[in-house]
Amino acid sequence: MNELIKVTIKNDQQVVSARDLHSGLNLKTRFSKWVSQNFNEFVENTDFTSVTTVTVVNNGARKPIQDYAITVDMAKQLSMMSHTERGKQYRLYFIQLEAKWNDPSEIVKRGYGILMDENIHLRMENKKMQMPALLGSAVSGSKASVNVGTFAKVLRQKGIEIGQNRLFDWLRTNGYLISDGTRHNVPTQKSMELKIMEVRESVVTTNHGSKTRFTPLITGKGQQYFVSKFLQSFK
């Protein structure tokens, strides 16, 4: 069946644009007058609803215009009321649409689709509700300090998609690590005062001599502190 007009689903009901139907029927009466002459035969919010669409004017600007989302049954009746050959063609098209829509196999298919959507939504809600508990249990009672990479792995195992590099970037952006200079990635004064981060110093010997390496660590208190920050995105 060739598509004569775009059909969308709204509140489990097939609807079409009144403007699209008016244009498709090749009516000479302007749209607003056609609406005032015919829509009083139907019930607003049952047979049709008022909507706003946009049209592109000559200068390329987008201008809002009045339109209506009308049911296929209403569109079928409006087509018949046009008393034109084009109207007969559209009426037959809408009759075929209704027949397909009400076919038992199509009803079962729609019902299955709704059920699948509800299951997906339920799983997402359950995951959202479980995530705070999962993250909280991952660090509850933790006393040992861990490096940023290890903490990123814990978060990732519990469903937070963040790697070591992204976590480093987040810590720098939010003022927990120094972002530049010779002390790059060293905990800031704020982190040290809050006792959520500490630094491990080690001496590394190379062919060019010895140098001190600073490794930022997240304390047990810090792990719980940062987890609470991530949990905010689940509220």
Rank of each mutant, 00 (worst) to 15 (best):
A18N: 02
G113D: 09
K143G: 01
F226W: 05
T188Q: 06
A99I: 09
Q224R: 13
S140M: 11
A69R: 13
L194T: 07
T215I: 11
R200N: 11
K6A: 14
F214C: 09
N174H: 15
S50G: 10
V35R: 04
T46L: 02
V15G: 03
D67K: 11
V199H: 09
K6S: 14
G113P: 02
Q13E: 07
S233P: 05
S210T: 07
K127S: 13
T55S: 15
V203W: 02
S82I: 06
I95D: 12
A152N: 01
F31V: 01
D103M: 12
D47I: 08
K76I: 07
L122E: 15
Y68S: 08
G136Q: 12
G149S: 14
S210E: 01
V204M: 05
H121T: 13
F48Q: 04
R110K: 04
E118K: 15
N40K: 13
N119F: 08
I218Y: 02
D20I: 06
M74H: 05
L25S: 03
Q77E: 09
S137F: 10
S32I: 10
E161F: 03
V148G: 03
Q157V: 04
V43I: 08
K28Q: 14
N165C: 09
S32F: 00
D67C: 08
V54M: 14
N147Y: 03
S32R: 06
R156V: 00
K153L: 04
M192R: 15
I178H: 04
Q232F: 02
T46C: 06
F234D: 03
G159C: 03
D73E: 12
S191I: 00
G159I: 00
G159W: 07
D169G: 11
S210V: 05
I5E: 05
N102E: 14
N58K: 14
K88H: 11
K235T: 03
F168S: 04
R86Q: 09
T212K: 14
A138T: 02
E41L: 13
T71D: 04
Q13H: 09
V146P: 09
S145M: 08
G209N: 02
P104I: 00
V72N: 05
G175E: 05
G209C: 08
L217Y: 12
F48P: 04
T8R: 12
D180F: 12
S36Q: 14
E3F: 01
V204T: 01
L231M: 14
E106N: 15
V43E: 10
A144G: 06
A133K: 15
S140V: 10
K221N: 07
E201D: 10
H184S: 13
D180A: 13
W34D: 05
M124A: 11
N38I: 08
G141T: 05
Q13M: 09
S79P: 00
E125W: 01
G111T: 08
G222K: 00
G159V: 00
I160V: 11
K128N: 07
K76Y: 10
N59F: 03
E85G: 11
L122N: 14
V35K: 12
K6G: 11
E118H: 09
N165Q: 13
